[in-house]
Design a protein around this nucleic acid. Structure first.
Lengths: 260, 260
DNA sequence: AGGTAGCGTCTCATGCAGCGGAACGCTTTC
DNA sequence: GAAAGCGTTCCGCTGCATGAGACGCTACCT
């Protein structure tokens, strides 16, 4: 008999949509352009299948062929801009983000929570701003960033417990990995209305973050990231002012229109 | 016209990916949240099919159910941020866009060409900036906007002819609809290195645009939009400066990395 | 009350389109 | 010349997508 005792293989779930998505998500890893075989490797799909599906995706303008492989194309970008979470929230927040940038000339972030992750919605940077490794559309654990800790601090106790129960991931040597420490820090954040990140996500970079609350529910967080030596106590009031102003504006909008 | 082959009406091509995309694209129209029946109407797909596919899309985090209908969800946003055209180009351009904003405090646009359309890649706005109806990810005809005319002016003669051959769309009473007029304006743009839009896309709004050229090929355009009464001759040099600086930076990057 | 229109959901027989192992032709590398 | 990697194509099997239609529900009319 053939030794297929492993039974490892997924029962062939013929879900075309899911497979198409798998292929697109393969581009989340390192590298910009991927060759067909590389996609097959990352997704675990047979080469012939990847070939067929990518051909379709190219026709739909979601992927594009270049000499160095396939890359996500403009159609995918247009789809992404249909998401109210992104569009509406960003639109409302942008003027306040600009104020913040102009007052400090540092890198500004706008982020929301999804599951146990921070997802960055906007990132504004000038020439002088530090280039933190965050990416719009990228994810990081809640416990390792300024915005993450703020988003967590104002969430329901349930979610906080969930995070504390799990092992805390470490991005730098300064990352908080002790549950007790994190817990007391969350308490401090709730009182102060501001959270800090001291090189916990990226070496040499500190940041100050504040919550955006709508009807007492947290919907987003704003932050400023600076090289640690440039940290100053005039940053917190600036971030706090912006987050309060944005909160006030969002209160007047319909909840679903910003993705809540 | 008669060159069309017999296949007049699409026989039911069982292309799941295409249908999934159709459903997502239904959200391009007016309205944020769509009910299932409305999606069926817009796409022309049977209700049962839409039901099945939307269920899958929800599982994949591309759509989300709300009480007022389905809306695009965070997963779709994340996919959109995988597109180098958006990410790389934006990343490189952002500092210069910020300079431009800070110098003028007006609404700044970054756009590229796709086919015969302008596609907006970035839009930065403060409190004072006019709220033009453009949307990031949105499309407008090349001939009706400042960025569009600049993108066209520096394209191959082939493309220009193609546009001139077709009827020119009109967005306001000031829109250029005469091919001869447009042609001479394109010539002026090529000489001056700057293009103008005098209420041709939106009533009361004028704008100044400049090309971003890499190795003598146009890859994008920058613009500033202002209420017509605020138009001033110090805008053109500012836009020109930014576009030249950005061009210089992009020259040092690999072509495919910004979607070229 | 009934009547109607709209909504989302679920079923199920049918057949066709997705499936993927395998073979192919090509280039590059050793 | 062999081997390894690439993208492409073939083709028979079958499992899944398909969509008409029934169903239950709510809302809003008579």
């Amino acid at each position: 008999m053939s030794g297929d005792e492993a039974g490892r293989q997924e029962p062939p779930r013929g879900n075309t949509l899911e497979r198409g998505l798998q292929i697109l998500q393969a581009f989340r890893g390192p590298g910009t352009a991927l060759r067909l075989s590389e996609i097959a490797r990352r997704t675990g799909l047979p080469k012939a299948t990847v070939h067929r599906l990518t051909t379709q995706l190219v026709e739909l303008s979601l992927l594009r062929r270049t000499e160095s492989g396939l890359i996500p194309d403009i159609g995918l970008f247009e789809l992404g801009e249909l998401v109210p979470l992104k569009v509406r929230l960003r639109e409302a927040a942008l003027p306040y983000i600009q104020d913040l940038y102009e007052a400090t000339h540092e890198t500004v972030h706008l982020a929301v929570r999804d599951g146990l992750d921070v997802v960055y919605v906007e990132k504004i940077r000038g020439h002088r701003g530090v280039d933190v490794p965050s990416r719009v559309g990228g994810r990081l654990p809640l416990s390792t960033t300024g915005v993450g800790k703020v988003l967590l601090a104002f969430s329901e106790a349930e979610l906080i417990d969930e995070v504390l129960r799990r092992p805390l991931r470490r991005l730098t040597s300064h990352s908080v990995t002790d549950a007790g420490l994190l817990q007391s820090e969350l308490r401090r954040i709730r009182i102060a209305g501001v959270g800090y990140d001291r090189e916990e996500a990226s070496p040499g970079v500190s940041c100050v973050a504040a919550p955006v609350l709508v009807r007492n529910e947290i919907v987003a967080a704003l932050s400023i990231s600076v090289p640690s030596q440039r940290i100053s106590n005039r940053l917190a009031p600036a971030v706090r002012t912006a987050s309060l102003a944005l909160s006030r504006v969002l209160n007047r909008m319909a909840p679903f229109s910003y993705g809540g």
